[in-house]
């Protein structure tokens, strides 16, 4: 342990890089976000509490949370599957499939929103078949979920993919020596190994979905109590020149995301450490 510390000290640039990181982080992230807290603190505590626990606001926390959760969950299942297919199998067009996974990162969210609404509206390419069955997609929570699934997809795939790649060779060896059937191998060896990565992807997709605005606002329909997402409520507050109220709701969302991301980072760090010890 001591040896490790000393060895680490031998590398140069810790003070420089750390100092720069902290200064830059403060300038770009911390100071701006601190202003948000400052603005929220212009409200008295009771005002703050009333704002963030208002019926409408609570309804939209719920909506934002459960649509984000399910979207992240869909991504967890299908994202892992896609990563699996991309790593383990060879097929025609694999490189292309691999490349387009990142599209939601690169495509502007507003464009994604407009395109998705065009497709899933009752007269859209896909929406019309569902409309014929009496199912509405655009302008319902289902539409919100589709938009959130779209923007979160790359997170899970890109988290799981490298781990699977690492496992690839080991998996073959294990299969050969143990003679175990594929189900056993999956649940005993592969799943535990990729689970942390899956969770990271899930958490990032979830966190990203919580804050999403551009793609959702077109497809959600914005009905109070039903399809109103949190960022829209923030805009509603601003429209009444109520900066304090907007900041209050923003602060709640921010704290929630921070805690979520922090727990994942700690948990990941711990599992990484465990693996190192083995």
């Amino acid at each position: 342990m001591l040896k490790k510390l000393i060895r680490h000290r031998a590398l140069p640039g810790f003070g420089l890089s750390m100092g720069y990181t902290v200064v830059y982080l403060s300038l770009i992230i911390l100071i701006p976000l601190a202003v948000l807290f400052l603005k929220a603190s212009t409200l008295s505590f009771t005002e703050f509490w009333r704002t963030v626990t208002d019926e409408r606001v609570v309804a939209s926390y719920k909506l934002t949370l459960w649509t984000s959760f399910f979207a992240a969950f869909i991504n967890l299942v299908f994202g892992t599957l896609i990563a699996w297919v991309l790593v383990l199998y060879d097929f025609w067009g694999k490189r292309l499939a691999d490349a387009i996974v990142d599209l939601p990162f690169a495509l502007p969210t507003a464009i994604a929103g407009i395109a998705l609404t065009t497709i899933y509206a009752p007269n859209g390419w896909i929406g019309k078949y569902f409309a014929a069955m009496g199912i509405k997609i655009a302008y319902t929570p289902l539409g919100i979920m589709i938009a959130l699934t779209f923007i979160g997809l790359p997170f899970v795939v890109r988290s799981v993919q490298p781990v699977l790649q690492d496992l690839d060779t080991r998996y073959e060896e294990a299969a050969a020596t143990l003679g175990a059937n594929s189900m056993q191998i999956f649940f005993k060896i592969i799943f535990p190994a990729i689970f942390p990565a899956m969770m990271t992807g899930f958490a990032l997709a979830f966190a990203r979905a919580l804050g999403e605005y551009g793609s959702v606002v077109f497809i959600s329909g914005n009905m109070p109590m039903k399809t109103e997402i949190i960022p829209l409520l923030i805009i509603t507050k601003l429209e009444q020149f109520n900066y304090g109220g907007a900041a209050a709701i923003a602060v709640v969302m921010l704290l929630f995301s921070f805690i979520l991301l922090f727990l994942i980072n700690v948990w990941q760090w711990k599992t990484a450490k465990k693996q190192q010890m083995i």
Binding site: Y139, V217, G221, N222, M223
Partner: peptide, 10 residues
Amino acid sequence: VPVLDSGARG
């Protein structure tokens, strides 16, 4: 009203 868009043009 089935949809409340955020703006008049929407």
